[in-house]
Design a protein around this nucleic acid. Structure first.
Length: 431
RNA sequence: GCGAGCGUAGCUCAGUUGGUUAGAGCGCUGGUCUGUGGAACCAGAAGUCGUGGGUUCAAAUCCCAUCGUUCGCCCCA
């Protein structure tokens, strides 16, 4: 079926685009307020960026990547996430990391997964990254930024899950503690976890199987086995989250599926979503730049799904952007008026102050006003033989249902006056 | 990748134990109204019943396959 978008992809139709722009614009505004600058990277990268960055044994790399060979036989992959490509770009251009480099991004990502609500093969993310500082206050800043962004959109029922998974020094030992503990209980673990035991024992903590869950409760938690430096870092994070009144839940089972995370990991969940309840996720990645071949430098970031965000807003009945109607529609009555109408719209458009369109359907005044109405038009200018003969066009206020005639040469001045007054009013309202 | 549900007009859906020509609301087009919109009334257009095969005198309805979608698992945004 060629008349259908590919599986797991959606079209964003004109009436939905306003919600997207509203969200994107608000996020840009927030990032600007927090001192972040936008960065754009290619939609595809060398496959190795992801296999090395995200980790060979992660689900994303193992089975979810859109990987292909180009005509020269290079292995390329549509980006399944932003962090690794952003690091690659920082390394490639030797961007200075002092003072800390604060970046934000938005755009599509691709993962070959089984689609369901809130999970698509092409999804969109927005997010931020901070490089060059290991200050725990930046962990807090990133969480604060995304929470404030959600708050200002009006989202309700959010919860923050927080954990620390330690650094390259202490992670092996907490890993060993889990392995030792599970080795004695290997026979009661589910098949999936037996597999995890070999590859990523941390994930056993996150299993939903009842017996594994029970076992995980008595399993040594990462928070108990991280080193003192990690412990102190984490304490500072929670201290400052408390200071700015961001509530969170310590979640021993939160380990995340990307290998590059160190120390702080977090997620924001919404109660309005189903199984795919994670609105955004992030954390610290102090080894990633080095893994990708750059000079060692710490980093922290967050990535949020736009589709899921819109889904929550729709479920909670949050309006997203006002529908933008046309300011003006010119309705010529019959082809004898076309030249006059065309000249008028050309000079109005040249002034560049209102949105204006010309109705060329030529089905009479009633139909013209009807379609203007459907498009949410504020003013209509009606031009027929009578108006041309008098040198005065009718200008009709479609919201008020009133009209009068204006001399042709006065029309632009008249409209400017109206729209000047309107912008003064809206400025006062927003101040 | 695994399990389950669903797929009828542009949209939301009805369609009986298989039985004549598959319906409604909204939307769309036209008319009442020949140069004045939003309302009302009237009329009209629009469907390979997801697709392909099978059972049957007869399939939107039952069976199989396939595609899409939804829910759960897995994983994540």
């Amino acid at each position: 079926m060629i008349s259908k978008a590919p599986r797991g992809t959606i079209d964003i139709l004109p009436d939905k685009v306003e919600a997207w722009q509203y969200i994107e614009n608000l996020f840009r505004r927030f990032c600007f307020l927090y001192g972040y600058k936008e960065m754009r990277t290619p939609i595809f990268e060398h496959t190795e960026i992801f296999t090395r960055g995200i980790g060979e044994s992660t689900d994303i790399v193992e089975k979810e990547m859109y990987t292909f060979l180009d005509k020269k036989g290079r292995s390329l992959t549509l980006r399944p996430e932003f962090t690794a490509p952003v690091m690659r770009s920082i390394i490639e251009h030797s961007l200075p990391l002092s003072p800390p480099l604060k970046l934000f991004y938005m755009g599509p990502i691709f993962r070959y997964e089984r689609p369901q609500q809130g999970r698509y093969r092409q999804a969109h993310q927005l997010g931020v990254e901070v490089l060059g500082s290991n200050s725990p206050l930046l962990d807090v800043e990133v969480i604060d930024l995304i929470i404030k962004f959600y708050d200002s959109l009006g989202l309700k029922g959010l919860s923050v899950s927080l954990n620390s998974i330690g650094c390259s020094d202490c992670r092996p030992s907490s890993r060993n503690k889990i392995i030792d503990f599970c080795r004695n209980n290997l026979d009661i673990l589910c098949d999936n976890c037996k597999n995890r035991f070999e590859r990523n024992p941390f994930r056993i903590l996150d299993c939903k199987n009842a017996t594994c869950k029970e076992l995980a409760k008595s399993c040594p938690s990462t928070l108990d086995s991280i080193c003192s430096a990690c412990k102190e870092h984490f304490n500072t994070v929670t201290l400052y989250l408390d200071k700015i009144n961001i509530s969170y839940k310590l979640e021993n089972s939160l380990v995340r599926g990307l290998d590059y995370y160190t120390r702080t990991v977090f997620e924001v969940l919404s109660e309005s979503l189903g199984a795919q309840s994670s609105l955004c996720g992030g954390g610290r990645y102090d080894d990633l730049i080095e893994i990708l071949g750059g000079k060692p430098s710490p980093g922290v970031g967050v990535a949020a799904g736009i589709e899921r965000l819109i889904m929550v807003m729709e479920k909670q009945g949050i309006p997203s952007g006002k529908p933008q109607g046309l300011d003006l529609m010119i309705i010529p009555l019959g082809e004898s008026s076309y030249e006059h109408a065309f000249q008028l719209i050309t000079s109005i458009r040249k002034e560049n102050f209102i949105s204006a369109d010309l109705n060329l359907v030529n089905k009479g005044l009633k139909a013209g006003l009807n379609s203007a109405n459907k498009l949410g038009v504020s003013f209509a200018i009606i031009i027929g033989d009578i108006e041309i003969a008098r040198g005065e066009y009718i200008i009709r206020d479609l919201k008020k249902g009133e009209q009068n005639t204006i001399k042709i040469e006065d029309i632009i001045g008249y409209l400017k006056k109206i729209y000047d007054q309107q912008s003064v009013i809206s400025n006062q309202q927003s101040a």
